[in-house]
Amino acid sequence: MASLRDIRRRIKGVKNIRQVTKAMNMIAAARLRRAQQKAESARPYADRLAEILQDVMASSGGAARHPLMAKRDVRKIALVIITADRGLCGAFNAGIIREAQRFLREQTVPVELITVGRKARDHFQRLDYTIAQHFTQPSRDVRLEEVGGVSKLVIGEYGAAKYDQVFLAYAKFVSVLKSQPTVVQLLPFVKPADAGKLAKAAYEFEPNAEELLNTLLPQYVEVLIYRSIVESLASEQAARMVAMKAATDSASDMITGLTRKYNNARQASITNQLLEVVSGADALAKKE
């Protein structure tokens, strides 16, 4: 049985850990709120951009052609994988990586990876995948310039026909308790799924529809990447918050158990000592 001092030391250790996990839990909660706000405030822009994009494509009678819409025979694919730089966030990174691997298994042509965040790079480097480019995870306030690198690379390489399709793997934020690892197609450009209602307004363009698409499409790609990065960030913080809450709870459980054990041991040793005294006294009494 563990000595009293050992138990006391363990209780102290667990208490220290609980303090750390509790702090991490609260930090994650605060960051989650900000990330959610960010995702929220990007929505009007993204929605309107999608709307205009559809209007422009519809108004031009579907005649508008653009390099980013061109479908080619697929000989090489790029997959952008967005994970975190850090761990201690439950199954967050593992979930995205698993989804990415399922996607990779299904492909019949070579796939090159573009990783955002250290975890994906570390994982796929070990497995000997080709990592065309790595980006560190953007800072918490996700500036557009940080995302620009990814979208520029993707658009450039697609335009140069290095890749014939570009996909994006990220953790879609569903709720605080749930995030959905998802793989979506970035390029060639596919119409947004909610392309139901077409605006009847006939637009005039300046410059012409084609040139407008020239600026619209890259911006739209950038927005898609930005959004997925922000959502991943929110998912990560949510996952970390939940994981740290669980860790704090089980640390508390451990402390309760250990304290009980400690009290038992203390009681036992007191009883022992008493027994020794009493039986010593008994023995003396018998002698007399």
Binding site: I52, D55, A202, Y203, E204, P207, E211
Partner: peptide, 10 residues
């Protein structure tokens, strides 16, 4: 100005 025709430009 107000009541401009629908228009998109870069």
């Amino acid at each position: 100005l107000a009541n401009h025709a629908p228009y998109v430009f870069a």
